[in-house]
Design a protein around this nucleic acid. Structure first.
Lengths: 213, 213
DNA sequence: CGCGGAAAATGAATTGACTTAATTTTGTAG
DNA sequence: CTACAAAATTAAGTCAATTCATTTTCCGCG
């Protein structure tokens, strides 16, 4: 059974994460001190470190929650029937970015990506990288699925195609979060033009792949 | 004429940058303190902040030097004659990553990218973003150049294609620097397979672009 | 020469993330 | 009920980046 100890631990974990989420969103990442998070969670500053390795881990834990949400929405989208390949891919990738600002701000994304980069071997750094890979694979799964329906050339390596499509959007997303003024609309426009370009190579009009000589 | 003051200022700037570069490479970014940099440059800690806004700016200044080098090498490569489109693009993109580890380590790249992300509005943060854009445009220029030689379909938007190609490599480069163990060879292999895939859509075998319905 | 003021250098003080070692609390076995 | 091992909590540090009030240095001018 769940001992008191277990329950308290889970509660604290949640409390701290919630406090951090609220304050991060309200005051920004840099201007939120661990002390303030601890106070809001009714806990001593040091206690925060029993649950999270660092301030960055706290942020990445929030991102991870979001990531799982996006991934599960994505897997539902893959299961749905697809009219054409282009819009299937576009819809999936747009669903990722659509959800990005529901729980997080651009500033939080910037800091999350930065933390994942500077601490690549910490548990959450690894977690962030794993999430990226999962989403790229998900796009790859969609491509494979579209191949089965003959909507995309079967000669194409679905894994590579998934990576390319995901990475393009990821790069554009990074630009999006670094430019506070850039509207979501513009991000999607750029995504669309780049996906179209890649798609021109995914249709397999005749020979499809390019080999030297 | 250059007064003593001007000259001293330039000297200090160079001294500090050199000290930082040496120590960053030797001990790593995190383990190099501003105090150590100041000491090596024979300057007080506070003085460093007269020349650079932050430790991160110092790092980004080093990256910017590297970036200019890469850009000028790149522009020479574009001027050379090209046998085929694929290898021209591949060579240009490989030249970028080949030079990435000449003056900087993976750890420094991670921290540089992270700093550029977290301080996007600082002068060097803007500089980093501008550099990325310049390199992407350079790839675009190469594509345009190849179009003129009829090595790439003229229907393609060279700017978009340049972006796609550059961003793909940039994404792979980020993965490369976050994984200390990943060899350059593997980065290039991944780059090649993704460029090939995009290329399949740049050849314009017949209709080229994809329009819905 | 040397004086006034602007620009630059200084380094001690501040700040906040993170660590640690002592204290308190919990679940349990006797 | 009680004593105790394990786990959680905390308060009091450490450390390094950054700031800022003060001092020093340079330059144009009398």
């Amino acid at each position: 059974m769940a001992g008191l100890r277990e329950r308290q631990k889970a509660t604290r974990h949640r409390d701290i994460l919630e406090a951090a989420g609220t304050l991060f969103r309200r005051a920004g990442y840099a201007d939120t001190s661990i002390e303030a998070i601890a106070e809001r969670a009714e806990v001593a500053p040091g206690t925060v470190y029993n649950y999270f390795q660092s301030k960055g881990d706290l942020l990445l834990a929030l991102v991870a929650l979001d990531g799982e949400e996006v991934r599960s929405i994505g897997s539902e989208m893959i299961a749905e029937p697809h009219a054409d390949a282009f819009s299937a891919v576009q819809n999936l990738l747009e669903s990722y970015v659509d959800h990005s600002l529901v729980h997080l701000t651009k500033e939080l994304w910037r800091n999350a990506i930065a933390t994942a980069l500077t601490q690549p071997d910490s548990p959450f750094g690894l977690g962030y990288a794993a999430l990226d890979r999962k989403l790229a694979n998900q796009v790859g799964d969609l491509v494979a699925c579209l191949q089965e329906q003959a909507l995309i050339d079967r000669e194409i390596d679905a894994r590579v195609a998934g990576n390319v499509l995901f990475e393009i959007c990821n790069s554009l997303f990074v630009v999006f979060v670094t430019q506070e003024a850039m509207p979501m609309e513009q991000l999607k426009r750029r995504m669309a033009e780049q996906i179209v370009l890649v798609f021109a190579g995914l249709q397999g009009k005749n020979s499809g792949s390019t080999r030297r000589k």
